[in-house]
């Protein structure tokens, strides 16, 4: 009940924001005044209607995970985000080993298999992608300067990065 009401409310706010953004769409002589706005406005309207329906006729709550699992998933999201920005300055092997190892540990909390999975997946996938499939833009490792590393990390910090 409660989850659906919250979800409906979040979607309703998003839909209203979307409609507001759609009315501000820039137009010019080629597109006409109204056509670029029409479809986004329709989508926003239908979405707002659906959100209201969900708020007023909610389904039963799903089984949400307990607090510790939420924390684990938060860590997983953070790891994946850091991995996403580190793969360019550090190359493939090192970040992949860490990210795969941590994820593996989170799925099944045993240290040794997790280390094994991280290193094995990282080296195995590198060989597969680089040599068997020949994907061009994957680099084994890079030695970054501290400034570059910091640059990459700031991407994840709101209002500081670019």
């Amino acid at each position: 009940m409660a989850s659906d009401r919250i979800f409906g409310l979040v979607c309703l706010i998003t839909a209203v924001a979307y409609i507001a953004a759609a009315t501000q769409i820039q137009t010019n002589l080629f597109s006409g005044e109204f056509l670029p706005k029409l479809f986004p406005l329709m989508i926003g309207g239908v979405a707002a209607l659906c959100s209201l329906t969900i708020m007023f006729r909610p389904d039963p709550d799903p089984d949400w995970p307990v607090g510790r699992t939420w924390a684990a998933m938060g860590v997983a999201v953070l790891v994946l985000c850091v991995y996403a920005v580190m793969i360019t300055p550090l190359g493939f092997i090192l970040p992949t080993a860490f990210a795969a190892g941590i994820l593996s540990y989170q799925i099944s909390p045993n240290v040794k298999p997790a280390i094994f999975a991280g290193i094995g997946l990282s080296l195995g996938l590198f060989v597969l992608f680089k040599f068997a499939l020949g994907l061009g833009n994957i680099v084994a490792y890079k030695v970054p300067t501290a400034a570059k590393l910091w640059d990459a990390l700031t991407i994840l910090i709101p209002f500081v990065g670019h």
């Binding site: 999201v77 994946l80 985000c81 991995y83 996403a84 920005v85 793969i87 360019t88 493939f92 992949t96 990210a99 795969a100 190892g101 994820l103 593996s104 540990y105 799925i107 099944s108 045993n110 298999p113 997790a114 999975a117 991280g118 094995g120 997946l121 990282s122 996938l125 992608f129 994907l135 061009g136 833009n137 994957i138 990459a152 991407i155 994840l156």
Partner: peptide
């Protein structure tokens, strides 16, 4: 599962990364 899922994730990252080479797409994917 502790080998399979990390493997699938890493393959997904490499796939998207090899398309555009942009960290933005990877973050968006997460």
């Amino acid at each position: 599962a502790w080998v399979l899922l990390p493997g699938v994730t890493m393959i997904s990252f490499v796939g998207i990364y090899s398309l555009s080479g942009s960290y933005f797409d990877l973050l968006l994917m997460v």
